[in-house]
Every structure is written in structure tokens, then in C-alpha cells.
Amino acid sequence: MTAEFDYQKTAQRVLDIEKAAIDGLYQYLDRDFDHACRLMFQCRGKVIVTGMGKSGHIANKIAATLASTGTPAFFVHPGEASHGDLGMIGKDDVVLALSNSGESSEIIALLPVLKRRGLPLICMTGNPTSTMAREASVHLCTRVEQEACPLGLAPTASTTAALVMGDALAVSLLEARGFTADDFALSHPGGALGKRLLLRVGDVMHRDERVPRVGLDTLIIDALLEIGRTGLGFTAVVDDQQRLVGIYTDGDLRRTLDHKIDVHHTSIEQVMTRSSTTVHANMLVAEAVKLMEEKKISGLLVVDEQHHPVGAFNMHDLLRAGVI
């Protein structure tokens, strides 16, 4: 019997209900929404987000989204708050409290203390006549017509609506602050985006003896040994002053073999590529990646102001660094 159950039909019904819940939020983007945004934008402390049960999980996510998009915020569990965690809330903070019913006893118990401290209170509920809505400095309504749960018990559409309203707040504040991708990277240094935006070539390149190099009169066969030693797929070719004058790559080797050139008796100067693409150590890795994509090359040499090779890296190094 279970195998005959139409799971997709139920899923479609859930999506329809939750889509309707999101569509219903447009009517609540009013002056109260603007007021809530201004309170958080002008906040000199942090936005304290709180909620109980499923609303607490949504509140935690909203706090994380705010914090990562330029609005300092953190989550405080309302049950723990009344047992000491209220001390985490400062005089310059703003409180954002979530409860679908607007009657969460754990949050209502905190209201006298929050009011005594004179903290702005933004309440997000599905009931504009609830205790929390009446006591709030600003009320954000997230009322839904029905839950996706057929029993009307499990918070589903209501939590989706609250989550979306939280995202609307966070992104509105992000744009109002002029928050940029570089700002985002500073709070996400461990992520791929943060690494691409913060890391510089000098952070990922090989140095010293790990930089392949040969002289102009080096035989091709010896240059191949140098390429194999470092495993980067290329070697720098330098003059007597150790300045870069060319590069020899795996691609150059294929062309050498195609022309049946004797690798044991021909110098690298005769077959090297002279116009090599180079970068500097202080270049952002993101810029280097873009350059490699444009030039369709898999590795780069790094030079200093005197055009001396000081580093080298390839796509494998970027993969290991987590930037691509």
C-alpha cells in the first residue's frame, strides 16, 4: 500500500501552500517593515534574535544571516535568557523576537525586563492582536492562511514565511549599508568565496627551490628533468642576471616532439616561449584565476619588480587552496 501512495502529489500540495504563504507576505511590507529596518540599521549594538521551538531554529538562522551580511547579530535562547543569558544583551541592542502565535510564554516573560531597559523590540508573529504584537515597538506580521501540515500542528508554512521575512530584512539592510562581496569575504574567510577574495598569489605560490628554472643554454632534456622535479608542468628560463626571458611548458614539449627536434642536443633557448604571462605576488588569487581562464593556461610564474621569478603555481595548487 505504501508503494502506491502518491508522494509527489503531497509534495506539490506542500509547495503550493508554502508558495501562497510567501506571496501573502507582500501585504505586510509596509511602514512597520521600514521602521524595523531603520531600528536595526541605526542600532549601535547588536540585533538580538530570539524564538522558542521551531521559531527558535528560524531565529537562529536569521541571526546568522544578519551577522554574515553586515548587521551584527546573535541568537539568544529565551529559556536560557531568563536564567542569566539576559546579561548578554546590552543597552544599545535591538531585540527581534519570533513566535507564530505571539504568545510564547518564554518570550513574554522577558518583556518586562526588556521594556525596563528601554530596548527597541521588534516582534515577528502571525497574530497581530497577540500579546507580543501589542507589546512590540514594531510588529512584523507573517500570518499564513494554513500550515502545509494537514493536521495544522507542525509549523511549516508559518516558519517558511518567518524565514523569508528575515531574509527580506537582512538583504534590505545589506543593500542599505552598501555591503560588498569583499565585506562578505571578511566574515567568511574559510569559505571558497572568502578565499578567492582575500587570498593573494603570494599565499598559494611555491617559493625558492620549488620554483622551476633553467638557463638559456640548458639542453631540452635537462629542462624536462627540471619540470619533472617540481611537477608544475613548466619551467622558467632565465638569463645570467636571473631575469625571466621565457617559459617552457608541456605544450611546448609537444610542439618540440612534433617538429622532431633532438631534445638531447638542442638548447631550451631555441624552443622556449618568450612572451610568457606573469603575475605579482600581491595580486589577488581571484584576478589570477580570471587571467588563467582568459589565457587558457594552467599555471603561472610570479615575478618581482626586476622580473626575477620568485614563485610559481598551477591549477592543482588553487584546488588544494580551495579557491576553485
Rank of each mutant, 00 (worst) to 15 (best):
R213N: 05
R44E: 14
F184M: 06
G322Q: 04
R134V: 13
T131F: 10
G178W: 10
P112I: 08
H188F: 09
I221F: 14
R117D: 10
D317S: 07
M283Q: 14
S172P: 00
P128R: 13
K296N: 13
S99M: 09
Q241N: 13
H188Q: 12
V144R: 02
M52Q: 03
T160K: 02
V271K: 00
L169R: 02
R116W: 03
Q306M: 09
H259M: 11
M315I: 11
I89A: 06
G231N: 02
I268T: 01
I22K: 00
A185C: 08
L186Y: 07
V49S: 06
P128Q: 12
R117P: 05
R177Q: 11
T142V: 15
A67R: 11
V214P: 05
A236C: 15
K46G: 03
L284V: 02
D240A: 15
K260T: 03
I268F: 01
Q146L: 11
V144C: 03
T69I: 10
P112E: 09
H77T: 03
D203F: 04
T159W: 01
V271L: 00
D183H: 14
M40F: 05
G322M: 06
A154S: 07
V271W: 00
L96I: 04
F33D: 06
L318Q: 06
L98S: 06
H57L: 15
L197M: 08
A21S: 13
T2S: 08
I297F: 12
K19P: 00
T71P: 12
P309F: 09
D208K: 15
E135A: 14
E209T: 15
H77F: 04
T180Q: 15
A236P: 07
S158C: 04
Y26V: 01
L300D: 01
M292Q: 01
V310Q: 11
A157H: 06
K295W: 10
Q242T: 07
L110I: 09
I247C: 12
E147H: 05
S267D: 05
T273D: 05
D167M: 07
I268E: 00
G311S: 08
G202H: 02
Y7K: 14
L174N: 00
A81K: 06
G231A: 02
T159R: 00
A176M: 14
V289M: 15
T65L: 14
L15S: 10
R210H: 15
P309Y: 08
K46W: 02
G190V: 09
S68M: 13
G178M: 10
C141F: 01
F184T: 04
A21L: 08
A63I: 11
L197K: 03
M292G: 00
S105W: 03
T273Y: 05
G118T: 05
Q270C: 08
L25P: 04
R229I: 05
R116V: 04
S172N: 02
A223D: 06
I58N: 09
V211Y: 02
I261V: 13
Q242D: 15
H83D: 13
F74K: 03
T10R: 13
Q242E: 15
